[in-house]
C-alpha cells in the first residue's frame, strides 16, 4: 500500500460535482495507487488554497468491441495484449466520493464548496494528511449515508487504509475509536454494524 510523502498521481478529473468526481487514467498506469478505499485529494482552486479530499469507491475499466473479440480468441496474443494496454485509448475510470476539504490549512469534514475542474490532477493523500484527516470521525456519516456506493465496505477499506498512516503504537487505539464511532452511528442496525466491525477487525 502506497502511503508516503512522494507525489502519487492517480489520474485527472473527468467529471465532477460537490458530491464526488470521476477521474481517468490509462489502463497501463493502473497500480497500487488505485486502491478501493484510498484517500485522494484534488485542488479546487488554481492556487491550491482549497483542496477536496475523497475516497476511491469504484475503479472501472470499460471494454469495446475489439477487446471483446480478443477475449474470444483461443489464445490471447501477447503483442495484441501489450497494444491494448499501452496504445489503445482505453481509460480506467476511478470514482471518488468527497468526504472533506482543506481550507487554508484547516481540514473540514463536510462536502467541499465547489467541485474540482476538469483535468485537475488527482493525487493520493500523504500519510500525514491521512493521519491529520482521520483525527476526527465526522466523515463516517457522509460515507455511510452515501448513495450508490458500497458504503459498508468503503468505510471499512478506508479505515484499514488509514491505519497505515498511524504509528504502530497508535493503530490499535485508532481502530477502537473508529469502532466506537461506528457503533454509535449504526446503533439502529446491528446486522450492518457487526458486518462493518468484522471488516475492520485486525
Amino acid at each position: 500500500m502506497i502511503i508516503n510523502e512522494k507525489r502519487h498521481v492517480v489520474g485527472r478529473v473527468l467529471r465532477a460535482s460537490t458530491m464526488g468526481f470521476d477521474c481517468g487514467t490509462r489502463s497501463s498506469k493502473i497500480d497500487d495507487k488505485h486502491t478501493f478505499g484510498s484517500f485522494v485529494k484534488v485542488p479546487i482552486t488554481d492556487d491550491e488554497a482549497v483542496i477536496a479530499v475523497g475516497l476511491i469507491h469504484a475503479i472501472r475499466i470499460d471494454d469495446d468491441a475489439l477487446a471483446r473479440e480478443l477475449v474470444m480468441a483461443s489464445v490471447v496474443d501477447n503483442v495484441a495484449l501489450m497494444d491494448q494496454r499501452e496504445n489503445r485509448m482505453v481509460p480506467v475510470e476511478i470514482g471518488v466520493i468527497n468526504i472533506g476539504y482543506r481550507f487554508n490549512g484547516v481540514m473540514v469534514q463536510s462536502l467541499p464548496p465547489r467541485p474540482p475542474l476538469s483535468l485537475s490532477e488527482v493525487e493520493l493523500c500523504t500519510a500525514d494528511e491521512v493521519y491529520e484527516f482521520t483525527q476526527r470521525t465526522d466523515f463516517f456519516r457522509l460515507v455511510l449515508n452515501a448513495k450508490e456506493v458500497p458504503s459498508d465496505e468503503l468505510i471499512a477499506a478506508a479505515l484499514n487504509y488509514a491505519c497505515y498512516a498511524y504509528p504502530d503504537d497508535e493503530r490499535y487505539q485508532f481502530r477502537v475509536n473508529s469502532g466506537r464511532k461506528l457503533a454509535m452511528l449504526l446503533s439502529n442496525d446491528l446486522k450492518r454494524l457487526s458486518h462493518v466491525l468484522a471488516l475492520i477487525k485486525p
Binding site: L66, E69, L70, V71, M72, A73, S74, D77, A80
Partner: peptide, 13 residues
C-alpha cells in the same frame, strides 16, 4: 487468428 471470431488481420483493424 488474433481476433477470435472475426477473421480479419489485427494490424488492419
Amino acid at each position: 487468428a488474433i481476433q477470435g471470431r472475426r477473421s480479419y488481420p489485427y494490424a488492419l483493424t
